[in-house]
Structure formats: C-alpha cells, structure tokens
Amino acid sequence: MLTYDDMNLKIGLKCDAFIPDVAVLDAALTLSMPKNIVAETGMDALTHAIECYINKNIDEFTEVLAEGAIKGLIRYLPLSYEYENYEFREKVHIYSSMAGCAFSNVGLGMAHGISHALGGRFDLSHGLLNAIALPYVLLFNSRDEKVKERLNNISSMIGNDIIEEIIKLNRKIGIPLSLKDASLDEGEFLNEFESLLENSMKGSTRVNPVNVTLDDMRIILRSIYYGKLEDLKIQS
C-alpha cells in the first residue's frame, strides 16, 4: 500500500510476486495487541471476506474460504476483543488469513475504495474506516439481486441479518456508527468532500458488484459521515 500525500490517496499495489508461498500464523504475536487494534484489524479481515463473497468474480474454491472466514470472524472476533486469550486470538488469526487468501483471488469492493480515499486524507486507521463503511456499502449493494441473495445466504448461516449483525458487532468492539462519531471534524470533511468523492471512485470501487455513479457516491459518503443508513434504502 502506497500513500500519495500530494493526492491525499492510498493506492494498493497488486502483483503475484507479493503473494507469499508460506504464511506463519503465530497467534502468540497477537496477545500484546491493544484492544482497538484487535477490533480494527479484525473488522478489516471481515470486510475482506464479505466484499470477496459478494464480488461477482467469485469461484467455488474462494466461496468456501470467504464463507468460513465470515462465520469464524463473526463468532470469534468479539471474544478475541474481550479476552486476551490465545485460542480466540488464534481463531481470528486463522480466519483473517483465510479472508486474505479469498480476496487475493477475486478482489474486494467499494468499502475498500472509500476507506483508501478517507485514509489517504485523514488520520484514521484502515480497519476502522472499513468497519464504519461496511454496513452502508452492503445496504447500497443489496439493491442488486445476486448480491442480495448472497447476503441472505450469509444471514442464514449466522442466524441474523448480516448488516444488523455487523452494526451490533461494531458496537460490541468499540467501533463508532459514523465518521462523525469517530471524531472526524465536519468542516474538514466538507472542505475535502469533492476530493474524497473523486478518490472514492478509484481502486476497489471499480470492481464493486454494483455500478456506482458520482451521485451515488455523494449520498454514500454523506450517509457514512452522518450515520444515516436510511438514506441508502431503495425507494419503493
């Protein structure tokens, strides 16, 4: 990941040479992590898994990895956050790796496009921005029938509506509902809005399962800032 300070933008570099032949998952390394890092890195991994799962490039092999990562992270991330426990941290470590394997096969979506744009300008972590953006992005994307079907599948697997479950999980692990609640200054956000809008259309937004227009993105960014999920519901 490179940050271009002159453009206030983060850009992810992708190359087969970046993919490791072996990954050593040593959960002992995670035991000293502060709670906010546990929450934010865990939600980044969950965003990887879910955006991969609803990506229209997904294949059968990747689908199994993404499904397993979603179910595992929903279950174990709050436990890993609450308790400094080796078993729980190891579970999240493994499911995070599964999510990484999955998205490297098919790509991500708009939540990452938005978080890269915001993270390039403001001093907020990537995982935090993904966690805040994810419910809004999923609600917008659910207007597509194939995406809606996949989200319904996830909801059936975990026993609750996936968007509601993410909001509940965020509350449980100290993630705010909106950018405003994350203490991002409203004046700064509005002053940078046009630049954020342009940059949010780049990167992973280009492979979002639903086409996103500039007008769509205006609504999405404002909704994420002010915490207005209802603005993204499909009007009947």
Score class of each variant (00 low, 15 high):
131 A>I: 08
167 I>T: 14
196 L>Y: 05
204 S>N: 13
219 I>L: 15
39 A>D: 10
152 N>D: 14
97 S>L: 11
10 K>M: 14
121 R>T: 10
10 K>P: 01
228 K>G: 01
193 F>W: 05
224 I>H: 08
96 S>I: 00
107 G>K: 00
80 S>Y: 11
93 H>D: 07
199 N>R: 13
199 N>V: 07
139 L>R: 15
3 T>W: 12
39 A>C: 05
59 D>I: 07
153 N>R: 14
146 K>S: 08
151 L>R: 09
10 K>T: 07
108 L>N: 00
5 D>F: 13
30 T>W: 01
17 A>C: 09
113 G>R: 12
16 D>V: 10
95 Y>W: 02
88 F>A: 05
66 A>L: 01
56 K>I: 06
89 R>S: 01
21 D>A: 10
146 K>A: 09
164 E>V: 06
160 N>Q: 13
1 M>G: 13
92 V>R: 02
96 S>P: 00
37 I>E: 13
205 T>P: 11
4 Y>G: 03
206 R>C: 04
103 F>Y: 15
229 L>G: 02
198 E>Q: 06
53 Y>G: 11
17 A>Q: 06
138 L>I: 04
214 L>A: 01
36 N>W: 02
189 F>E: 08
11 I>L: 15
11 I>M: 15
179 L>I: 03
144 D>R: 02
102 A>Q: 00
